[in-house]
Design a protein around this nucleic acid. Structure first.
Length: 733
DNA sequence: AGCACGCCGACT
DNA sequence: GTCGGCGTGCTC
């Protein structure tokens, strides 16, 4: 084989290795970047890989190279621009390119299945079929019934519809087709999209927002749409999306969790009319593939999905919207730890299209980007639903008599609403009965053996559960240390709060909404329906209940424990507390009477709390930003977290020492903190440590990060442990 | 990540 | 004598 008849392809594979692999390809085979290939890998494995480069040379000795087995695509599956984005993400997050690329692909594509859109057919009667008397088919009853069905459905029937109507249809249908009585016609999904005339009336503020954003529709611009709860951000999104799709381009909309936004989706669907293509984890593998392909081929004008939908390919990108941009769920918390919001911004930049970040409680990062002039800020300050902002009352719990987790003042407020036949929401972000079990005699704590954090007592299950791993234990009757029978349950979770409320208000119907009570599929919807039907007086809920839902009968929100957000080791805790606070308080009130939010605290004078109760998130954010600036924390500095998991304590020490030395070698402006044991020092039996790296020069830092990763990867001590790097960590767990 | 190779403990 | 534990090393 002469050298000129072969070429070399650079292939990435779904393996955690920071390198590509070269393979030989016959020149007669058409290959180009973005196509998938099947390649031999290792001794006996066959892997699906993706070509990222075609060339004539390789740094590897030619006789060590293997031939590819076959190509899997005729056309590139990923466009050049999309590969750029993935390459950027791989560099930015220091995650192996192969894993990044394959993470971005639907499972069936990863497995090497054909990237073929399923064309659906509709079976219809031919002219001959229409002229046929069904009675003439009396000897073939199945054919007769299909013919009758098609007569009744002049628009034709799909395979699915036929199966539903007559069961096994395929043989008789074939027979009818052979006789020329029926025929199949390809039906294009796109043709089914309808663009209704229904235009929503925007108020002055919304129109102004649309006007200022639509000026940017043909270039990159990141817009922070800072709109208070109920100000109608959705209508602004819709107006923008409509412009983009009538222009023949595609809009990508990201939402935090699909399950929490059913109203949002149905509103989009109704008002846009265009077929909304969704991408989220609840879809079957095939649905995911089909929708992904519709997006890629430009046949899906609007794509809506959760975090991973940011990777959906688009033939004609026109706009990206990130709803609730502050939401933590945009950051993937394991494996490839990317932020879909930040990817969206880069994607907008690379594709030269606008990115709209919407939130009632923007992240500090976004506010600072506005301050730096990088983002355009567009505000919506009026509520369109005419609900007045709730009144907020702080209750000083210091030295107050308590019934369970409730102060007398909150109990009184609840009683008053119940008397008026209103609904009450009590917010407590902690499920289970009590978070700590302790021996009264010797102070023994029921800890998880694998994570070494306190176990939560769940009364309903009568088990001690670890909220960080899956382990559970039976509840001991006596202290395992000293045998004392007096075991104290310290602290309150939603289960216990529900019990307290049942004691105080025996006649009230109480519903608990948390991950435990909504575990079964569809039970969340059932609970929401029950609440809306007035089948509940008091709702006890975790943050699940804070988002999205609006219950018209709800007039009082009680925040049972806000203090945890004020004093946490995590510097972002207060930002999150504030966002949750604004969201939860937004649940109270209706058009006719404003709501009341009662907040229990031991620190009524706390400055952040004071700002919040003025109902002014923006001023809260300003003072928080001041604080972040003076302490040199994000968004004024940039963080990376080197995480290590080791089986034995001594294993991590040499690795960290060498890794820090390599970093110090660079003599740049990095500060390191640690290594320290992770806040959850043990998980599933492995010891966890972390090293925090802080820098003020992100670009310079990024340039060195790649080298550093390659160097630490090569360290002998790295092989004894498991390590990973989290760029822009969102929480330190 | 897989998968093989390799070197030491408890078993039919 | 072997089956199998997981440490180590490699993948174009």
């Amino acid at each position: 084989m002469s050298a000129s008849s072969i070429c070399i392809v650079q292939v990435v594979l779904p393996v955690p290795l920071r390198r590509t692999f070269d393979y030989l390809v016959d020149k007669k085979t058409r290959v180009s970047p973005g196509m998938r290939v099947l390649v031999p890998f290792g001794r006996k494995r066959k892997q699906v890989g993706l070509i990222i480069k075609v060339s004539n040379t390789s740094e590897i000795d030619k006789n060590k190279l293997k031939y590819i087995n076959q190509t899997l695509d005729k056309e590139p599956l990923l466009a050049k621009a999309h590969l750029h984005l993935l390459q950027w993400a791989s560099d930015y997050y220091q995650h192996p390119l192969g894993e990044v690329i394959f993470h971005a692909l639907p499972v069936l594509i990863r497995q090497g299945k054909a990237a073929k859109i399923r064309t659906s057919f509709r079976w219809q009667l031919t002219a001959a079929g229409q002229a046929t008397e069904t009675a003439s088919l009396h000897r073939a009853p199945k054919q007769k019934s299909i013919l009758e069905l098609l007569q009744a459905h002049p628009d034709g029937l799909t395979h699915d519809e036929l199966r539903a109507l007559t069961g096994n249809y395929s043989a008789p249908l074939k027979a009818l087709a052979a006789k020329g009585l029926v025929d199949k016609k390809e039906c294009h999904e796109q043709a089914q999209a309808r663009y209704p005339e229904k235009h929503i009336q925007l108020n002055a503020e919304q129109s102004a927002a649309v006007n200022s954003i639509e000026k940017t529709l043909d270039k990159y611009q990141c817009v922070l749409l800072d709109g208070v709860t109920g100000s109608g951000k959705t209508e602004v999104y819709i107006a923008l999306v409509r412009q983009v799709i009538t222009d023949g381009r595609q809009a990508l909309i990201l939402v935090p969790e699909i399950g929490l936004t059913p109203q949002f989706i149905s509103r989009l669907q109704q008002q846009l009319g265009a077929r909304l293509v969704v991408l989220h984890s609840a879809l079957s593998a095939n649905e995911r593939l089909q929708n992904w392909l519709l997006a890629k081929l430009g046949q899906a004008p609007v794509i809506l999905g959760t975090r991973s939908a940011i990777w959906a390919p688009m033939m004609r990108p026109g706009l990206i919207i990130v709803d609730e941009e502050h939401d933590l769920s945009y950051k993937q918390q394991d494996g490839f730890r990317y932020s879909a919001r930040d990817i969206a911004i880069m994607r907008g930049k690379l594709a030269a299209i606008p990115v709209v970040l919407g939130s009632a409680t923007p992240s500090m990062e976004s506010y600072q980007n506005v301050n730096d002039g990088k983002f355009l800020s567009v505000g919506l300050a009026q509520r369109i639903d005419e609900i007045k902002p709730p009144q907020i009352r702080l209750i000083d719990m210091r030295a107050q008599p308590m019934t369970g987790a409730l102060s007398a003042a909150l109990i009184q407020a609840i009683g008053k609403e119940l008397k008026h036949n209103k609904q009450v929401l009590l917010f407590l972000n902690r499920r289970g009965f009590s978070p700590v079990m302790m021996c009264h005699q010797c102070g023994w704590l029921a800890n998880c053996r694998r994570c070494e954090i306190p176990l939560t007592y769940h009364k309903h299950k009568n088990k001690l559960l670890c909220h960080h791993c899956t382990s559970q234990r039976p509840v001991p009757r006596v202290c395992p240390e000293c045998g004392c029978a007096e075991l104290l349950l310290i602290g309150h979770g939603t289960e216990r709060l529900t019990e307290t409320l049942t004691d105080i208000f025996p006649a009230a119907k109480i519903l608990r909404i948390d991950r435990d009570s909504t575990r079964r599929k569809g039970s969340m919807n059932a609970l929401v329906d029950a609440i809306n039907a007035g089948q509940a007086d008091i709702l006890v809920g975790t943050q699940m209940l804070a988002k999205g839902h609006h219950f018209p009968k709800l007039t009082l929100v009680g925040i049972v424990d806000i203090d945890r957000g004020l004093f946490s080791a995590d510097f972002r805790a207060s930002e999150r507390m504030a966002q949750l606070f604004i969201q939860v308080s937004g649940r109270a009130g209706r058009a006719t009477d404003p709501g009341l939010v009662v907040v229990q605290t031991h620190y009524p004078q706390h400055p952040l709390l004071q700002r919040l109760i003025q109902h002014d998130y923006a001023s809260f954010a300003r003072s928080l930003l001041q604080e972040r600036k003076s302490t040199n924390l994000p968004p004024f500095s940039y963080l990376a977290l080197l995480r290590v998991e080791a089986n034995q304590a001594a294993m991590s020490e040499p690795f960290f020492r060498e890794a820090i030395a390599l970093l110090a070698d660079k003599k740049h402006n990095f500060e390191t903190y640690g290594p320290i044991p992770a806040p959850i020092a043990k998980r599933s039996g492995r010891l966890r440590y972390q090293l925090l790296i802080l820098t003020n020069e992100r670009n310079e830092f990024r340039r060195h990060l790649g080298n550093w990763c390659r160097q630490i990867e090569a360290l002998p001590s790295a092989k004894k442990i498991r390590w990973s790097l989290d760029v822009d960590p969102q929480d330190m767990l």
